[in-house]
Structures are given as C-alpha cells and as structure tokens.
C-alpha cells in the first residue's frame, strides 16, 4: 500500500496547479505518545479545505486556521501543541504527547 503521506504531496501539487492557495503542514518533532509520526502531512487550501492528518484529529482545526494565514502571508511558521490547553490555540492532545508542526506555503507565492 502506498503510504497516505505520499498521496498528500500529490494532492498538494494538484491543488497548487489548480491555482488554489495551498499550505503544507508537516509534523517535525514529537514527544511522548504523539498520534502521528514525524513526517506526517496535512495539506490545506485557502478556503480551509484539507486532507491528511498531523494528529489524528486533535489539533487539525487549529493547524488549518494557522495555515490559512500562512497562505495569505506567504511565510512559513512553526506551531507547537501540548497536552494542556495552555497554548495560544486552546487545543491539545488528549493522548498526553506534544508535537511541533511546520506550516509552509506551497506554490508561486512561497517565500524564497
């Protein structure tokens, strides 16, 4: 079976070619029992549509919100989510882990 993450990158390319504003979120670091491994992807468009998973559903909403801003600004950012809801996004991982997610714009509007 082709891993789901590979299909996400193909989706990111297809969406970008359609001219949709696109961002790619990638899990770059995990601590404790994180739900998705390092390297997992989520692709998001300017309308907030998304495919893939960085946490199995726990923090996707917050990542999508940030990604829409990343698309608008054209600059990457790094997000961190922990177990408690003391993060700026008031969401957390119920499993007790922590993850760091890199969100970058995809396509011609990307920062060089």
């Amino acid at each position: 079976m082709i891993s789901t993450d590979t299909d996400i990158l193909a989706t990111a390319e297809a969406w970008a070619r359609e001219g949709r504003g696109v961002a790619l979120a990638t899990v770059i670091e995990t601590w404790g029992s994180a739900p998705r491994p390092v390297g997992s992807h989520l692709v998001i468009d300017a309308q907030g549509q998304f495919q893939g998973s960085v946490s199995g559903g726990c923090v996707e909403g917050a990542v999508v919100e940030e990604a829409v801003e990343v698309i608008a600004q054209g600059k990457p950012r790094t997000l961190e989510f922990g177990v408690a809801d003391d993060t700026a996004w008031k969401v957390g991982l119920s499993c007790g882990g922590r993850i760091r997610v890199y969100v970058e714009p995809v396509g011609t509007r990307a920062a060089v």
Partner: peptide, 14 residues
Amino acid sequence: MDLATLAALNAERA
C-alpha cells in the same frame, strides 16, 4: 515550498 520543488519530489517518488 515552491511548485517546482514539490513537482520534483513527487516525480522522484513516482
């Protein structure tokens, strides 16, 4: 990620 890099990454995987 610029589109050319993403396309190259996808092509290499394919």
